[in-house]
Simulated scan of single mutants.
Amino acid sequence: MWAAGAVSDEDRLDRTQTGQVLRRALQFARPYRRTIWLAVALVSITTVCVVAGPVFVKLGLDRGIGGNSPSTLNIAIVGYAVTIVVAYIVGRLQYLAINRAGEGFLRDLRVTVFDRLQAQSMAFFDRNKAGVLVSRMTADIESMAELIQWGLLQFVGAGLLLVMTLVLMVALSWQMTLVVVLFVAPVLGIASVRFQRKSNVAYLDVRERVGQNLSNLQEGI
């Protein structure tokens, strides 16, 4: 029986092994690359809409209301409304594209893993607990599907949003941008790294406990 809360050595992946796992996962996503690229394009449009919204608000407040210009205020209102509508429509299309690619990836991966498992000898099942195998076939595959469905696209969207926001901040006030980069960004970076490390350990711990519970349930039945 494994020690509760411990992470086995085989679950510890270095950077090379992590890269190999990601490359193998991306091979399963190759049949859906057109849908994924479409989702990336839709994410880019959504990011532009997110950045454009505050710009129209600023235009309406500064030049519309502050400058006593009804025409400018009307332009800002219409532009903001169009941005919301476009963001909603593109968001729905993005959701459909992401889920179509993700569910197809999930189906192919599950079929491949199940075929590989069925081809194993009886000695393999004697050496490995059924609960652990079930846990890996469910939790791990779901995690890979979430990576393809949302992880990569969120990474692209967050990167584009960061770049566009920095460009806009520099255009508005380079002094404030410098303060944010020097004082706020390091704090967020350190917090993100610590969260990633602790969440990875917690995920492996949860997966191990689920495997133990399934093994105990099978042995009890």
Rank of each mutant, 00 (worst) to 15 (best):
L217F: 01
V132A: 15
P31V: 05
E208D: 10
N99C: 03
Q120S: 05
V78G: 08
A119Q: 13
Q94M: 03
A185Y: 01
A6K: 13
G67L: 06
I36F: 08
L106Q: 07
L188F: 09
N128Y: 08
L161S: 06
V7E: 12
T47W: 09
L182D: 00
Q175G: 05
Y32V: 01
V170I: 14
R116M: 09
P31A: 02
L38M: 13
W2R: 15
Y80L: 13
R194C: 02
A4K: 13
Q17I: 00
W174H: 10
P186S: 13
V187S: 08
F195G: 00
L172S: 09
S143A: 14
M137G: 10
D14G: 14
R110V: 09
G102N: 03
D14L: 01
T112W: 05
L42N: 01
R100W: 15
G66C: 02
L61Y: 06
R127K: 11
T177F: 11
L93W: 00
W150D: 13
R136I: 03
L178E: 00
E142Q: 07
R194E: 04
T83P: 02
V57I: 14
A52P: 01
V184I: 15
V132N: 10
V78A: 12
I65S: 05
A4T: 07
G67Y: 11
M144L: 15
V90F: 13
R209D: 13
T35W: 14
R110A: 12
S199I: 09
M137C: 13
E10M: 07
